[in-house]
Amino acid sequence: MSTNKQPLPEVVSSEAWKSALDQLLIKEKELTRARDALNAERRRLPMMKVAKDYIFQGELGQVSLLDLFEGRRQLIVYHFMFAPEWKAGCDGCSWAVDAMTHPAHLHARDTTLVLVSRAPREKLMQYWSRMGWSNPLPWYSSYGSDFNVDFGATTDHGERHGVSVFLRDGNDIYRTYYTGARGVEYLGSLWTYLDLTPFGRQETWEDSPEGWPQTEPYVWNRRHDEYGD
């Protein structure tokens, strides 16, 4: 009979536990400050103009990359791995969608979040129904377009997941940021998505370039059904 026990953390007194926790919190605060500094550096990245036209299939039919912004200044595209010949979408990308925030909070910061995949629109909607997703996130098909190839989501080695960020100035579109692989692991809350954008969370405590849109923290956020138009 096996006597192996499941390994567990060490059991200590309340004083020792509090001391260990306080030491860890020091490191966690250092990590938070380092992440804030990295986000500030990201907001100062240069950007690249998107000169090519791309066509997608969405709920209302054929649309352009500019249409994906839905009139907002910033656009986050999650490159969801779903090749045309696949029977189902990527399991890891499905995890990411399971964790995605309600888009109303991003909209309140002039930011749109969408999914883009190469599979035909009909396949995307069938999979959406299978997953039972209720989050009103737009999912566009780039089938027949160069979009996935041009933005690194489809390579000679196949599909790749990732996130591209775009900024709109009038009708001109610029790519400001991209991350893939483990760079998408921490995404899920509205804060982590906003941190990827050139304008960030748009709060006064942030280290942002002069003239960036900002408000005081904790005064703009609402429940997702309270923003109105």
Rank of each mutant, 00 (worst) to 15 (best):
M1R: 10
D156M: 12
R118P: 03
L24A: 10
S208K: 02
Y178S: 03
T155K: 08
N4Q: 09
L187T: 01
F199C: 08
Y140R: 14
P9F: 05
F69L: 10
T204D: 07
K52M: 14
R175H: 09
R35T: 13
R33P: 09
A40V: 06
D229C: 14
L21E: 10
M47D: 13
Y218I: 06
Y143T: 07
D172S: 11
S145M: 07
E159C: 07
A40S: 15
N221T: 05
P217E: 09
D53G: 15
K18F: 02
Y177T: 04
S13V: 04
S189R: 08
A153C: 08
W139R: 04
K29S: 12
P198S: 03
E70G: 05
S14L: 12
F80C: 01
V50K: 14
A40D: 03
Q214V: 10
G58Q: 13
R182G: 09
R223D: 10
M131C: 11
E159W: 01
E210H: 04
M131S: 08
I26A: 08
S94R: 13
D156H: 12
G158K: 04
I26C: 07
Y193V: 04
T155M: 10
E70S: 14
T112A: 04
W86L: 09
L66S: 03
N4M: 10
E210S: 06
R44C: 15
E70K: 14
R42G: 05
T176I: 04
Y127R: 04
G92M: 14
T32K: 15
V165G: 02
P138A: 15
E122S: 06
P209S: 02
M1E: 12
N135T: 07
F80N: 11
G170A: 09
E122K: 07
L25G: 08
D91P: 04
E10P: 02
